[in-house]
Every structure is written in structure tokens, then in C-alpha cells.
């Protein structure tokens, strides 16, 4: 499946670890889809399934995020730099409901609410891991 350019969503991207890894990440497993690896260009989506949605509840933050299941492909683009990365949905997350109203900004424009979690490989392709969060546009 090719990475698309049709606008899907916008918001905050965070990062997480999964699969083969070190330290506290060594116990995280391969995620809800069973395929997640920190070194791959992958993502967690808050509406990867009904069960996933019941945990993340982006609707409680006003985000009616559409369902995209395991294997869905998205392009995640940094709001300001324009750098982008193509990722495959491989897990459920982030827990949007826990951080309603959180905003990440660049060049004076902010994106609100956590809407996608990227693996370290994917996040570092478009941003600095030590920033923890990025404002992004998401396409499919």
C-alpha cells in the first residue's frame, strides 16, 4: 500500500518504543498488531479498533478520529519543516484522553491533542526525539 497525500488529520505526534529494544522498552512487546518494532517506520493510532478506541477515547478531547486498523499506511508530516515519513499502523495509542488540550507549536501555530504515536525510527526521521512531541499533519 502506497503512502498517500489525502488529508486525514492533524495534531500532536509523540513517540513510543515497542518490539526488540533495550531498557524499560525491552518489556513492551510488539503491540496490538503484533508487529511493532522501534526500528521500523511504524505508528500507533488511537482508533485502530473498537477495543483500542475504548482505551484511548480521543472523542473525550473532541477528536472524532476515524478508524484505521493494523496495516493502514499514513504519511506524517512535520507542520513547520515539511519533512515527512511514511508509517504503518502497528499498535494502539496514544492515550489521547489523558492529555486533552495539550498543544505543541512551531512558528506560532499550534496543534492540539495527541493523535498519533511514532516509533523512534519514524519520529527521528522528522524531528528530535528529545523534544518528545511534534505538531504534524497526517495524510493517507
Amino acid at each position: 500500500m502506497a503512502c498517500g497525500s489525502t488529508s486525514l488529520w492533524a495534531g500532536e505526534a509523540t513517540w513510543f518504543c515497542c518490539g526488540s529494544s533495550w531498557g524499560p522498552c525491552s518489556s513492551t512487546g510488539t503491540g496490538a498488531c503484533g508487529t511493532c518494532q522501534s526500528s521500523a517506520h511504524q505508528a500507533a493510532w488511537p482508533n485502530a479498533s473498537a477495543a483500542c478506541f475504548s482505551i484511548t477515547r480521543p472523542d473525550l478531547c473532541g477528536e472524532s478520529i476515524p478508524r484505521r486498523g493494523c496495516g493502514a499506511v499514513m504519511t506524517v508530516k512535520h507542520q513547520c519543516s515539511g519533512s515527512s515519513v511514511c508509517v504503518t499502523v502497528s499498535d494502539c495509542g496514544p492515550r489521547t484522553k489523558s492529555f486533552c488540550g495539550e498543544a505543541t507549536c512551531c512558528n506560532g501555530t499550534c496543534r492540539t491533542n495527541r493523535v498519533i504515536d511514532l516509533t523512534p525510527a519514524a519520529f527521528s526521521a522528522i524531528g528530535n526525539l528529545s523534544s518528545g512531541m511534534l505538531p504534524v499533519y497526517i495524510y493517507e
Partner: peptide, 14 residues
């Protein structure tokens, strides 16, 4: 899966 080619205006700096 394939990676897109970005059309960033600042690509030359990268």
C-alpha cells in the same frame, strides 16, 4: 510500502 519524496522548500539545506 514506499516512502514519499518530500517537496519541502528547504530541502536543499538538508
Amino acid at each position: 510500502m514506499s516512502s514519499p519524496r518530500s517537496t519541502s522548500a528547504s530541502g536543499g539545506r538538508g
